[in-house]
Design a binder for these strands. Sequence first.
DNA 1: ATAATAGTGTCTTTCAGACAGTATAGT
DNA 2: ACTATACTGTCTGAAAGACACTATTAT
Lengths: 286, 286
Amino acid sequence: MAQYDASKYERPSVTVDILVFTVTDEEKENYRKLSEKKLRILLIKRGEHPYLGKWALPGGFVKMDESLDEAALRELKEETNIDDIYMEQLYTWGDVGRDPRTRVISTAYMSLVDSSTLNVKASDDADDAKWFTVSAKTFQEQKNVTENGYILQQLIRLSLSNDEDDLSAVIKTEKIVEGKVTKIKREVIESPDIAFDHAKIIEYGLERLRNKIEYTDIAFNLMPDLFTLTELQQVYEVILGRELLKANFRRKIADMVIETNKYTRDSGHRPSKLFRFNPNWISISE
Amino acid sequence: MAQYDASKYERPSVTVDILVFTVTDEEKENYRKLSEKKLRILLIKRGEHPYLGKWALPGGFVKMDESLDEAALRELKEETNIDDIYMEQLYTWGDVGRDPRTRVISTAYMSLVDSSTLNVKASDDADDAKWFTVSAKTFQEQKNVTENGYILQQLIRLSLSNDEDDLSAVIKTEKIVEGKVTKIKREVIESPDIAFDHAKIIEYGLERLRNKIEYTDIAFNLMPDLFTLTELQQVYEVILGRELLKANFRRKIADMVIETNKYTRDSGHRPSKLFRFNPNWISISE
DNA sequence: ATAATAGTGTCTTTCAGACAGTATAGT
DNA sequence: ACTATACTGTCTGAAAGACACTATTAT
């Protein structure tokens, strides 16, 4: 490595993109039944080229005098007015062609907010910020056995929607096992409505969320201060994409919550006890 | 966001740093006893400013026409001649002052190699590349209970050594729990021999390795093609930093390995069966 | 025979999964 | 009384932890 000269190297742009997830109630149609929960993500309609009019993750360029974390918090505040929340770094996307303008490397962050934040959208920046329900489904799976390993290919359909828009994208993941070495590739196959490679970032975030909810306490970042155990269970169910048995679920999360003496009211059926998060729950690290 | 103009923004430099881990046998002193295993990491002695003469992670600047992954593989090949191995992205470090020259954002990768790679060091670049045994120990822990949460502070001593050098650093981790929101900070307190913030990157990598070995098959990337179950167990033990019970360990990894009809010889005791990795073991995702 | 490690059997405890039962508000 | 949900008890089987036992080579 020669004597360093900062001006000598051409440098990529660095941005942050933020996945803001929340879980909200759907409007209840059926009389006094419990309302269904939906997982949602916040997207912003682009008001400029490239991808004009397409939907993208909130985010922007990192300034020279702020850390990546600070940049992510600032961008989120600027674009959505959301503040003081859970945020963790997800992954850094650095493929060459991911932005048609120049070389852009982007660090993605994942943020979880409780549904009361839902209304606080679109601030100073007059951009169009909207919540979309998210779901990802594997609709094709193919396994090819090779010399000493195999290749597993999955096609995943990502669907985002709200009352006005229905967005959709297809992501291909490829798991290549050869001998001891495993590699995972992720590629956007089709993304007519979602800008850049954001579809695959969202899909990756979903996967991380699904994994982490099993062994950490992140789910509580999606909850209000007081909640019922059924609500908590619904949040787990909507993220995991499957139903859980009530008795078992309650046993599993028992130590993570503290019971209060408050109850829900006027629910049309037996009231339920309200709980709050137990901050002294001992989680395993990272 | 105004109309984009690439030249308008000042841009940070982007680098990759690679943590290359391996597990090696110590020279056996005691007659026919099994040799102890040590976890090692590859460092490079800096031949230029800043941190001239200090030890640093292999790595370097990302070029405009290569992805982050490609940059990491290329740098590793250039500096150490190591090729075709397991590598995963770890984390991106983007604090403002981490490089005294300019703003540098660095994506860290973790790579695991088997000990036969040990000899293949220092290639074209005439830099001094050396393997160091690694260990990290928490030597102070402090918990302060706050209004609605707590702050947990840990001081960790990172020790790196080989026959010539003994490096040491102190890292402070701070876990701040306030209500539902948890934040983790990691800070280098003292690092006289290790360049930049690389001490905390190494500590973070160790933690990730320790976590992932519990629920994935990454450990096999540290093994040669054929290995005994005792060797495999030793690798687990040196990474986890605790002893495991043989019978239980074997039950746990039973499905991950395939038995061969080969045995060790001339060991001074009962020979042991050699195994290899089972690439069809179904791991959980991520 | 002895040192040293290889490899197995089984008891216990813990935890996940399944299911069935009882309890209580609102209409 | 009926609907809808809240909440609990317990059986089963799988996995994790602990420990003791047998087996096999080189000297």
